[in-house]
Design a protein around this nucleic acid. Structure first.
Length: 118
DNA sequence: TCCGTGACGCGAT
DNA sequence: CATCGCGCCACGG
């Protein structure tokens, strides 16, 4: 499992970010966002700073959070308020292959919001 | 072995 | 909006 997560995280291009949930899905464990956290915590040679909350929010507490934001800004990721501008910087894995959103009832019903439908 | 704990996410209230 | 509740799953006590 962490192998998959590790791999997925490693594929996030510099200058872009992704969310815990997105990584979990990409790795093949929809809903297992927590495991992504674990994977990031334990692994050390990963671009962990490229992973933020679902809304582009930095969830890391304390200094680590500051560092994460700093690193992202260095990579060119822009922020809007206290969150990352996902609209511009979110990295989309092969969503077409991941669209098997396992659980999550019918979130797709009115997906009028962020037009992220490939 | 069972139980609580997360850098979470998302629909429902 | 703010909150709650549940799902997910590896770990440490």
């Amino acid at each position: 499992m962490f192998e998959d997560i590790h791999y997925v995280v490693a594929t996030i291009p510099r200058g872009t970010v992704s969310s815990y949930g997105a990584v979990a899905r990409a790795a093949g464990y929809p809903g297992a966002a927590r495991q992504v956290v674990w994977a990031l915590r334990t692994a050390n040679a990963l671009p962990w700073h490229r992973v933020v909350g679902a809304e582009g929010k930095i969830l890391l507490p304390g200094e680590a959070g500051v560092e994460q934001r700093m690193r992202l800004e260095i990579e060119g990721v822009r922020f809007s308020g206290g969150r990352v501008r996902m609209e511009e910087c979110e990295h989309y894995f092969d969503e077409k292959v991941l669209r098997g959103r396992g659980r999550t009832r019918r979130t797709t019903e009115k997906r009028t919001s962020v037009g992220k439908m490939a």
